[in-house]
Nucleic acid binder design. Structure first.
Lengths: 246, 246
DNA sequence: CGCGACCTTGAAGAACGTCAATGGTCGTGG
DNA sequence: CCACGACCATTGACGTTCTTCAAGGTCGCG
């Protein structure tokens, strides 16, 4: 737990245990995974669309996200990643990146060779199943975001996103209360939810007016968790966690 | 190829070979998979949100789709499935369905027990990798739809959807020209793309006015494939096929 | 023939985007 | 300590896109 590379496997184990039961041997095997560490500043691309990576990145601390740029100034953000995530795990079986993976905040990242991961999934099929499951939860989150973009209004989408981020941060122990550092600019929230910056701003004002949230000094305080869940039509089933989050 | 259950494995093999190289042994193993066959009419649910299926379904002929209902009359369709697909392969590692899988057209479906699939993925890790890859392509398609719903206009989204369906139908040999039976009502197209029926109707009129498509007798004719791709901002990279589709 | 499912049309309004300007906060260097 | 600049949040005015509601119209089928 002391050395940074132990920190990497600890975070991965913690993440996998939020969606899968690991036994002692499996935890041990994961701890043996060789990793290479690297620090990134904010807003740096880690793997770009078109790349053919030979390794995947495990987020240790900070926040990452995935996006695609289409034409002039139009960006779509697909996902937000919290510590313990392997944002480009999919590159293990999809050789060409069809989108870009980047840091949102300064982040500590561990790289794991695909060969090592592949070998582990073959030798320990249950760990393979856990990782496969992780990519399936990833897809489930995409589906939920699709519902939002297709069929929910702006305030609902924003509330939903805040609910999801809070639950996921709590699941890996980054936060334990109902406050968390708001790492997103309104532009980034808009790019994630398919909204303009201006409209995000006005919709967030609505959430504040309803006393669901408060923002001060780059911190988001959830004032009324039940109310926010209701506003966001948030049902955490799609996160497929082992235990229902609070 | 004669018996219906051979037809099932043939379609699966064909589908997997569009995204993965199988060898003779692997083809042989897949052919041994025990399946149960069943015919469905149109608009029938095959697995529902909340279910915990012990088998997955392989589409042999017809069209299936996946969706979620949220509140009064709001439905979001996530994906369209062509023969050879296993629409709920994800249930292999996500025990609870977070959405519903249904037929759009009358369809012939083969059910495969999860136990048999799991055993195969453990004994033949390359087949496991192919199936995992398939679920990752599924997720890549979600991402592309997210880009559409978040950042593209109605006509572009519709053109994109037609391009994708055509490419996928061609990949498994259901069509070889540029015409295909249009299995969707305008309401379904709207539910897939996050649009109202009325707006789908008007946007399709635009595509016809531009001589990109023609619809007659429930058949969609692509009059100008290059033009449609351009209108739809369609780049098939995200389908991760072995060979670039025409 | 008549019914149901689907497509089409018009009109009005809500939701959201764009443009452009203002103000706040924070870190940095003088 | 202050001034500056960068980045971000906020506001107003105005346009566009898309939705909603309501009413035909078309087609296949029993």
């Amino acid at each position: 737990m002391s050395s940074p590379s132990h920190q990497a496997s600890e975070m991965l184990i913690r993440k996998l245990e939020s969606i899968f039961d690991l036994n002692d041997q499996e935890r041990y095997i994961i701890k043996q995974l060789p990793v290479t560490l690297r620090d990134y500043g904010p807003d740096q691309d880690v793997a770009r669309e078109g790349d053919k990576p030979s390794q995947s990145c495990l987020l240790i601390s900070g926040i990452m996200f995935r996006y695609k740029i289409i034409g002039a100034g139009r960006r779509q953000i697909f996902s937000i990643h919290t510590p313990g995530d392997i944002p480009d795990l999919q590159s293990l079986h999809l050789s060409v990146m069809d989108h870009t993976v980047a840091t949102l905040q300064p982040s500590k990242v561990a790289f794991i060779q695909h060969d090592a991961l592949r070998e582990m999934t073959v030798d320990y099929p249950r760990i393979g199943a856990a990782l496969w499951r992780d990519t399936l939860v990833d897809a489930a989150i995409f589906r939920e975001w699709m519902v939002g973009m297709g069929r929910r209004g702006a305030a609902t989408r924003i509330a939903h996103m805040f609910c999801e981020v809070l639950v996921r941060l709590r699941a890996v122990g980054v936060t334990d209360g109902y406050d968390f550092p708001l790492p997103f600019t309104q532009e980034e929230i808009g790019d994630a939810l398919g909204l303009s910056t201006v409209h995000v701003n006005r919709s967030m004002q609505l959430l504040r007016r309803e006393s669901l949230i408060a923002t001060e000094k780059r911190t988001l305080k959830v004032l009324n968790w039940e109310g926010l869940k209701e506003m966001g039509e948030f049902d955490p089933l799609y996160l497929h966690m082992k235990q229902e989050p609070a």
